[in-house]
Amino acid sequence: MKYFHRVMFYSLLVLSLVWTCFALKTNPFLLLYDCEFIELVKFTYILGGITIFWPMFYVEIIDYLISASGRNGKLYKTYASSIQKDIVVSFIAALTLGSIYWLDLVKYNFSGIDLGYVGFPFLIYSIYTLFQIMRIKVAGKPVRKSPIIVMLVVVAIFTILAYSTLVKNSSGEYEAYQAIWFQLTILFASFFIFTSVSFQKHSLEKGKVELSKFKKYFFSQVIRSKNRLYESLGEPLNTMNKNTLQAKAKYSSSLRKKGKK
């Protein structure tokens, strides 16, 4: 499976890189040749920010399936169960919309929004979840709202951009290869945002954060990283878990003392 995962990851990454250049009608080599360095830097950031969602969609799907099966630890098992309903609802919505396109007897011309539309429930769930996170208290103390607000703004901006893109796509402003790319990118990015935000909420509610066993394996054995960035998060997370456990114990103790009074 290691080589299969590797092939899938890099295939999606390369496909995304090439397709993005065509979809955005930009040739980075031409920008370099014309010495348009500012435009090249801007496009490089756009390219990097967009293309990573394609292979990471694959990683998140596999990680969810392994978590649901219980092979990723207890925390990830309960996390997978907590978002199962949302995923099922989105899947049913996709099937419903797909059946409408199938039965409407109109030739499909890629101006539909079926693929991109599937991502919208994930974005709505993410925004709602971020508002829920702001109400969570850990050891009696509310979570820091500033980073959550930043995330909320980013997700909201992405949602608005995705909406306007799908409107343009439905109006037939994009060519077929562009329409498919925009829709897939919206879907993949939306799912990644959804899983990231959902796991953050679940971890805060449980008062514990753990690294995914699958992702630890993936980013050390499948996609080899010299710095082992993902694994390096383990120690600070363990420290944070210990501090949270101590804070919860003190908070519980103070509540018991107040109760006795």
Rank of each mutant, 00 (worst) to 15 (best):
L95M: 08
K168R: 14
E235A: 11
M56S: 06
Y108M: 02
Y117Q: 03
A247F: 15
I113M: 08
Y128C: 06
P142W: 15
A179H: 13
T51Y: 09
I61T: 15
M56V: 01
D34K: 14
S126W: 03
V155R: 00
K258T: 02
V154P: 01
Q246K: 14
K215R: 04
T26L: 05
F43K: 09
F194Q: 11
S203I: 00
L229R: 03
G234C: 02
L204K: 02
I133G: 04
G140A: 06
S69C: 09
G140E: 08
K242A: 15
Y3Q: 09
T26H: 00
L47N: 04
S67K: 02
G49T: 12
R228I: 04
K216G: 01
G259F: 13
I52H: 03
E205A: 04
G116C: 12
L103Y: 15
L30F: 07
F91V: 06
Y177S: 12
L15H: 10
V150S: 13
G259T: 03
K261L: 05
M134Q: 11
G48P: 10
K261G: 08
G207P: 10
V138L: 07
R228E: 12
V138K: 03
I113G: 05
D63E: 12
S225Y: 07
L152T: 11
F192H: 13
L229F: 13
R228D: 11
G234T: 09
G70W: 08
I50W: 01
I186E: 10
G73D: 06
I100D: 12
L15S: 11
Y128G: 05
L237P: 15
L12E: 12
D86R: 00
R6K: 12
Y79A: 02
I66F: 14
S82W: 12
Y230T: 00
S90R: 00
F43N: 08
S146G: 02
A176R: 14
R6G: 08
K77W: 12
I136T: 13
K145E: 06
V154N: 09
K74R: 07
S82I: 01
M56Q: 10
S254G: 02
